[in-house]
Amino acid sequence: MSMREITYRDALNEALHEEMARDPSVLVLGEEVALYEGAYKVTRGLLARFGERRVKDTPIAEEVIAGSAIGAAMGGLRPVAEMMTWNFAILAFDQIINHAAKIRYMFGGRVKLPLVIRGPQGGGKQLAAQHSQSVETWLAHCPGLKVVCPSSPADAKGLLVTAIRDDDPVMFLEHEILYNAKGNVPEGEIAVPFGQAAIVHQGSDVTIITYSLMTLKALKAAEELERDGIHAEVIDLRTLVPLDMEAVLASVRKTNRALVVQEGWPVCGMASEIAARIQEDAFDDLDAPVRRLTGKPVPMPYNRILEAQAVPQVPDIVAEVRRLAA
């Protein structure tokens, strides 16, 4: 399969174009997704190609966007709802938690809910407390939702394709900082399966478990550590629900040391869950405490310097790994 380098944004856009062309039941809805082609231009060209019936501009009402997408999915369509950011999707949490997550279960499996809600999250652009949050932990704690966090253009495309074809509600969390990131993406159809982590850097001394933007930071840290002779293995989880603990445990059994890195708040976060499972299932393999490196438990600061301090940075990861390796 031939490769070319494209951005994360274009990879997502390609997935939408291909899936809409492939399956007439796929539709896109959200604020400014049609005429304006999306606040981040992820839905570029969709209205011109597929028309107003399948590419819908909605009012600024997240609860309605999620609610009508849920109804469309129950009715047999495959809606892909865009939230301008996941920060605003918090307004739709009742629809997501009390309806999307529960409907298949409530109907004894007789109703499917092939719904994707996608949009950006995360900090790093000085957008402050209400536009920089990471929501994956809330979603992962709500049974009935699948949670996807791609870190590369190839995974962004391949996971979005899988999400759209999935019969369950998928919460697709893009990172705002990554839209312009470039990477190799295979030509033509690709589908990346859910529940399969990727080992993005091989190592034998310490396992770094992470996802989304933090994967890029962990990779930089691993390269730096390599120069000191410390070989970190970096695992990109790619999907948080389902979670590929086999890959995590296999690596920890090899390295005997684990660091979990996440951008969001610490308490009851994804990193807590992963650390809890490592100590449950690899207790005798551990040579050191399972460490977590997370965002600080504060609303995201606007100030540039404070914002940088509120989330893990490459030197923080390097320092943690050094401590663990020792």
């Binding site: 992962a140 809890a276 100590q279 551990l286 460490r291 977590r292």
Partner: peptide, 15 residues
Amino acid sequence: TCGFGAEIAALVAER
């Protein structure tokens, strides 16, 4: 998953 038990387990495993 991501319940308060996860936090206690993670904290104890860490500290």
